[in-house]
Amino acid sequence: MLRFVLGRLVSLTLSLFVASVVIFLFVEVVPGDPAAYMLGLNAQEDTLEALREQLGLSGTLWERYSSWILGMLQGDFGTSYTYRTPVAEMIADRMWISLPLALYALALSTLIAFPAGIWAASKRGSLVDTGIMGLTQLGVAIPNFWFAMLMVLIFAINLRWFSAGGFAGWEAGFWPAMKSLTLPAIALALPQASILARVMRSSLLDTLGEDYIRTARAKGLTRAQALWRHALRNALIPVLTIIGLQFSFLIAGGIIIENVFYLPGLGRMIFQSIAARDLIVVESVVMLLVFAVILVNFAVDIAYAVVDPRLRVRA
């Protein structure tokens, strides 16, 4: 087991290193001079040079890479070119929107998917099953930004139940803040809920077909009793994996939704930073997201290995 964990740790470190190099090189070749962007049309060459010097854009590629990585290891993500504030602070600020949004969406998705999946599985083949599966097909196929537009049209512009976007701020209180995250969270959650409900259903049906369930039923349990007492727990493993993977997706997947609802979260920050050529912000945020995903994958691998020793020898 220890060998397995160590092995995975080595490849985790390697992945992170490769990712950092890829991201750095990628961001470095992005055309556009941040200094030119900041100074605009009438800037003179000597002014531009002075600003580039101030921004620390003039070292060699290797110098810049190593100072970026070493800084990151110490929790120093550098200073934003445009805002002139520490990137770590900006990320922490934006995190307070993106993270709750992702959690909210995840909660919604789970709350919708679990009952829907269980219900469909327990009434397999019935009208309910067909209806739920049909709805999940729609949920997977609908472009979430289009769905967001339709919700804005109905709930914000016509009914005025929600504001069409923006973030009330946590200082305005928990409920107003949650209210401004509600439409975005629904838009984000819908496709995820559909996927999750489908996984839940098929995973349940799988376990219901296993021998021990048949035995349980032979002992006189009804189908529903067998489902609740035995199948559900075992069916949860693949479902939890999907939830784990969806979480990192939701953090990053908010880019478009945050833009539709103009929420000042991480996704919007990335978009704005790319447009403003604020390379250091782009590098650091992407690196952080990749780190999060790799870490989640690592945790899932380890968890699997703990549950199922056969997996320790990588199949």
């Binding site: 992945s15 490769v18 961001v27 992005v30 978009f271 992407v286 990749v290």
Partner: peptide
């Protein structure tokens, strides 16, 4: 397989945006 994991680890839409930005 590690290369696959690595690509999976990148937020896809974000990378697509970066590619088109470059």
């Amino acid at each position: 397989m590690r290369g696959n994991d690595l690509i999976f680890a990148f937020p896809s839409l974000l990378i697509a945006i970066m590619i088109t930005a470059v």
